[in-house]
Design a protein around this nucleic acid. Sequence first.
DNA 1: TGGTTATACGGTATTGATACCGTATACGAT
DNA 2: ATCGTATACGGTATCAATACCGTATAACCA
Lengths: 186, 186
Amino acid sequence: MDDLTEKMAQAFDAAPIGMAVSHHRVLSICNTSFAEMLGYDRPDLLGQSFRILYPSHAEFDRVRDIGLKAMEEHGSYSDERMMRRKDGVPVWCRFRARTLTPDDPLAHLVMSFAPIRDQLDGAQLTKREREVLSGLSRGMTSKEIGRELGLSPRTIEDVRARLLRKFEVKNTSELLSRMSYAQPRN
Amino acid sequence: MDDLTEKMAQAFDAAPIGMAVSHHRVLSICNTSFAEMLGYDRPDLLGQSFRILYPSHAEFDRVRDIGLKAMEEHGSYSDERMMRRKDGVPVWCRFRARTLTPDDPLAHLVMSFAPIRDQLDGAQLTKREREVLSGLSRGMTSKEIGRELGLSPRTIEDVRARLLRKFEVKNTSELLSRMSYAQPRN
DNA sequence: TGGTTATACGGTATTGATACCGTATACGAT
DNA sequence: ATCGTATACGGTATCAATACCGTATAACCA
């Protein structure tokens, strides 16, 4: 068999970004990163509907038509969307898709999924950490964030320090370059 | 030959994101998106050094060691960096890499490249600004960036100040959160 | 030719960030 | 029940960042 083909397949599998192929919204193949990102063993995913990877049936329906027109015209589409891990934890992703069948885009899709908060293997953010991160991304000082949250600036500094340790970065700038704005949730 | 292998190779090729494999900084294979993103015909890229894809030899040297330690430890690395199209136009990318040879990370790398945006809020970055931004996103201080670029720390502070004015942000953290690819453009 | 901008560097002054030291409560897991 | 972690706060010490003051050169543009 073709050596080049084998190398490309290996590259697909080892890619540092989640990748998957679907036919009419059924996953036919995916790579290791994709399965890991969503907390599955790969064999459990193959042949499954993408339904199980979205937070709800409504969301699954909603995203179906999104980007259809763009793909009919340009063959590709990109947005940011929420996926659902096996354990139920939502993952906010940069989603990219290219169709190999522009007349019927969903018939054969190649997709990539990049978690927006990467470097985040298992480490998830607490509510406080998200609140503080939100302030930091808006350029606020610890003092200002403390005022906003009704806390001592010292406490904000504690949370910052914890974030720096957690993500193994040297300072807040590096932290924010690794993470995107994290919307505070409850 | 294996049908699955062929499908994975096809997915690699048609991926909606630039992908490439290198051995010791020489490109061995890449997909269509990668060649398109950088303005080349794919055959012209295969076997080439990655040198031609960076803005300068200095930049090519500089990025070599970046992320080596992370890859030795975790097998993967990600940052944002400037690539150079065939026509000389710089492209700001989200770069991700996974090594298949953790003992010698550069021996066998699988990479993905996602263009962040074509224009940064209409404002163009100068070469200096890009170099400084690169250091900042890696958590370096002005002093450290100055050393890396052979400049006075004071000059780095000037460039930082210019960046803060240009993007109308309060500090470096807000700057980097805006430069992140996941950020909504204003 | 003058105006603007980028580059590069010096000084000083103030604020902010970060790293330590410490205490204390709360909560979940083993 | 003890361990680990998150939370919350206090202090001090040091370094970094930012904002000003200044000068100077080079490039480009109207």
